[in-house]
C-alpha cells in the first residue's frame, strides 16, 4: 500500500471523527444554553475544547452563541468546522478512492453533498437539533458502510488508527477544559450548577446512558473521571481508544513482520498512564495527567507518519 494512501485514510477518518465530535460538542453546549440564562462562558469552553478559541477571536470580537455555533459548524475560515472537515474527509476519500469500497466512498460523498446543503447558510436555532442529528447520522452511516464492506486489512487498520487518535484527542481535550468540574473540591460544592456541568461533560461524549448503566444514579466526579479515562468498555474513553490504536498497530506488525516505533509508544502510553487507579491520577494532578497524555498522543501520531511513510 502506498504511504500516501495510508496517510489519506488516516486523515480521512480523523476528519470524519472530528465532524461527529464537533456536532456533539455543539449539542452539549446548546443543552447548557437552554438550562441557563447566560451561556457565553459555556460557548467559550466549547470553543476551547474544539481548539479554536484563538482563531474564533481573530474573527469575532466576543463569544456569542450564534457566532460560536456558526464558526463550529460551517465557517470555512475554521479548518475544523464540520463543513471544512467533511470536505477534507471527502477530499482524502477521493485521494484514496482505490482503497475504499464503493459503499464507503458513496457514503462519504453523499455525506458531503447532504451536509454542504444543510450547512449552506446559517442554521436557525429551531433547525439546529435536526442538523446536528444529521451530522451524527452521516458519521454513523460511513462507519456502518466501513464495518460492513471493508476487508480487515492494512487499509482498515490505518482508518481505525486515525479514528481513535482523533477520538482520544477529543475526549482528552474535553477533560482538559472541564477538569475543574471533576476536582474533589468541586464535590463539596455540590450545587445543581455542577450537575449541569457533569451532565454536559458526559453528553459531549454520548456517555450519559453508559455511565448510568455502570454507576447508577450517583454522579461523583471521581467516577466520571474513571469512566472517561480508564473504563475499557467505554468506546470514547482514553484507555479504550489507545488500546484500539495499539491493537491496530499490532495487526500491522503481524502483517508487515515488523513492529513499529509507533506501537512501542502506544504500549508505553498504556503501561505508564492508563494502567493505574484513578486515585493515582488525581494524586499526580488531573490537569497534568491530561497535558502529558495529549503530548504523548501527539507523538504517536507523528511517529505513525514517519513509520509508515505518509509523506516524502
Amino acid at each position: 500500500m502506498l504511504g500516501k494512501t495510508a496517510g489519506g485514510l488516516y486523515w480521512m477518518f480523523r476528519y470524519l471523527e472530528r465532524s461527529e465530535n464537533t456536532a456533539r460538542l455543539v449539542e452539549a453546549g446548546q443543552r447548557i444554553a437552554l438550562t441557563r440564562s447566560r451561556s457565553d462562558d459555556e460557548w467559550q469552553s466549547v470553543l476551547m475544547t474544539a481548539s479554536s478559541l484563538d482563531s474564533y477571536l481573530a474573527k469575532y470580537p466576543a463569544v456569542t452563541k450564534e457566532n460560536a455555533i456558526d464558526w463550529l459548524l460551517r465557517d470555512r475560515d475554521n479548518p475544523s468546522s464540520v463543513l471544512s472537515v467533511v470536505e477534507s474527509a471527502r477530499n482524502n476519500a477521493r485521494l484514496v478512492r482505490t482503497a475504499l469500497t464503493r459503499e464507503v466512498w458513496e457514503s462519504v460523498n453523499e455525506s458531503w453533498m447532504l451536509l454542504k446543503e444543510a450547512l449552506a447558510r446559517r442554521v436557525p436555532e429551531r433547525d439546529l437539533p435536526e442538523v446536528l442529528t444529521r451530522i451524527r447520522h452521516r458519521s454513523a452511516h460511513v462507519r456502518g458502510a466501513m464495518a460492513g464492506t471493508m476487508l480487515r486489512n492494512e487499509i482498515y487498520n490505518f482508518a481505525r488508527i486515525g479514528s481513535f487518535i482523533e477520538r482520544a484527542d477529543n475526549t482528552a481535550r474535553l477533560l482538559d477544559v472541564k477538569y475543574y468540574v471533576l476536582l474533589p473540591s468541586a464535590l463539596s460544592v455540590g450545587s445543581s450548577l455542577d450537575n449541569v456541568q457533569w451532565e454536559s461533560l458526559l453528553r459531549s461524549v454520548s456517555a450519559e446512558g453508559g455511565f448510568r448503566m455502570t454507576h447508577g444514579q450517583t454522579v461523583r466526579p471521581l467516577e466520571i473521571a474513571q469512566f472517561l479515562i480508564l473504563d475499557r468498555r467505554m468506546p470514547r474513553s482514553l484507555a479504550f481508544c489507545v488500546d484500539k490504536i495499539a491493537d491496530n498497530l499490532r495487526y500491522l506488525a503481524a502483517d508487515y513482520g515488523a513492529r513499529s516505533a509507533t506501537l512501542a509508544l502506544a504500549q508505553t502510553l498504556i503501561e505508564n498512564r492508563l494502567s493505574q487507579p484513578i486515585e493515582a491520577i488525581f494524586d499526580t494532578g488531573l490537569h497534568e495527567f491530561i497535558q502529558e497524555f495529549l503530548y504523548e498522543l501527539g507523538m504517536i501520531g507523528r511517529q505513525c507518519e514517519i513509520d509508515f511513510r505518509f509523506y516524502e
Partner: peptide, 12 residues
C-alpha cells in the same frame, strides 16, 4: 531506486 522506478509504500 536502483535503476527502477519505485513507489513509496508503507513498507518502503
Amino acid at each position: 531506486v536502483d535503476g527502477k522506478v519505485a513507489m513509496r509504500t508503507t513498507q518502503g
